[in-house]
Design a binder for these strands. Sequence first.
RNA 1: GACCCGUUAGCUCAGUCGGUAGAGCAUCUGCCUUUUAAGCAGAGGGCCGUUGGUUCGAAUCCAACACGGGUCACCA
Length: 499
Amino acid sequence: MFSNEYLKQRMAKAEKLKENGINPYGHFAKRDTKISEFLQKSKDVENLENKRDETKKFTVAGRVKFLRLMGKAAFFKIEDESGILQVYMSKNDLGDEFNVLKKTLEVGDIVEVTGYPFVTKTGELSIHASSVRILTKAIHPLPEKFHGLQDVETKYRQRYLDMIMDINTKNRFKTRSVVVSSVREFFIKHGFLEVETPMLHTIVGGANARPFMTHHNALDIDMNLRIAPELFLKRLIVGGFEAVFELNRNFRNEGIDYTHNPEFTMIEFYWAYHTMEDLMNLTQKLFDFLFEKLNLPKQLEYGDMIIDFDKWKKITYKDALVAIGNVPEDILDDVEKMKKYLKDSGVEVEEHIDNRGKLWAELFDEFVEAKLINPTFITEFPIEISPLARRSDENPEFAERFELFIAGREIANGFNELNDPLDQYERFKAQLEAKAKGDEEVMDMDYDYIRALQYGMPPTAGEGIGIDRLVMLLTNAHSIKDVILFPTMKPKQDNKEDI
RNA sequence: GACCCGUUAGCUCAGUCGGUAGAGCAUCUGCCUUUUAAGCAGAGGGCCGUUGGUUCGAAUCCAACACGGGUCACCA
């Protein structure tokens, strides 16, 4: 612990500060100006004859990011949340204080600087220090300044360091915060009520996924972290709330990869007396709202794609297979022909995929999904792959369901809700049968939810949007870990004391 | 879960054919009052991811394991 050579050297400097009457972890900050404010208020200085304004006095603070010590003067840069500022200090101005700083000040330290604005020979607006105080001594050296922190594992495990070293990281998470608050603002503006339903469940439901299990000691019952809030939100519709949303974490005990984290953020919203058509319109409005809030171009860069948010499309599942996937129309009602087509295309189809809907899904995943770059609503889903959606009255082969695809990826999933209690009961029973056969990603029977439907849920449309993936799209992030502040990582077992 | 790649100083990275562990930045000592990856002179700093194997000898070859990344499969 604290045995590294660099830490020892820096701790010795902290001791030296104490010897000079300075607490290396003091608490006497007197900052009166953020760096961005300083730069804004001082920008006229370069028009002055001697390029300085000694009548002004500001106190700024931040972390030292660069340090250039000379014999009797020094330049360094400090960064706060708002920006970065160069400081000039000299022995002439600081006297003995300069000598102490010269021996103790290092990159990484948090300092407070009082002084006046001036412009250097090379034209950089800076602060000429009359006083420099170390507020917090950093004893762990920062990564090298030119390349910064490159190791992705360290960026995820030590996010604080990633934030110190990479302005893009800070900006990306600021954007995430704006997205989350804007989504809230949008739904509240449209008359939705934000609600909080339980995260500790006693029944697994609302999605098909394996849950995290835990135990409540006082009640002596097993509980699971929720995989979705859906069934509680729809109970609220039964209760009389007509538009509700919940924007919070779901937990699924599944694999981790660049689009999956065990805890992830979803917004689910339910709208009584509305239809999936209304949801699609609302979704498009939500994107318009976000683009305005974030000041993003409608032709958005994502990876090597350009996504045109002025060109929304709506197409049925079947038309997408034919027009976008180039699947021959005459095979779409023939299970054997579809199997042969997939096989001839080099796609291996598992044996249990034996009905029309599942084969359409195979064809869709293989030939369509990756081509849906611009925002596209896919409608008229096969009933076989839509267990929670209402069956179409006009055409019982289809579910009243849509999905939104952007950048070849599913972004949203919505449908007219099933509100027939008997039908819902049968579908829960089918889940139990699948569980008996060994399927672990199934819902439990929720008798209370059936009872709620017995009281009557008005015609309702509901939708879910994955917030993490939405932020990935809007920040051009490749991995979900890049938009989650502290992504789930396997702990390292090596010497924990050796920090 | 499968396959591929990575792991060497605080950080970014070299390391040839198996033969005493390297650079830049950072750090330490000295010099330097307008620097922009500042400069000059000198110095210190290593469980080469872990364990085992082959070998006279392993950072290097082999195996297993650990952690991470990428691609595929499944999922949101």
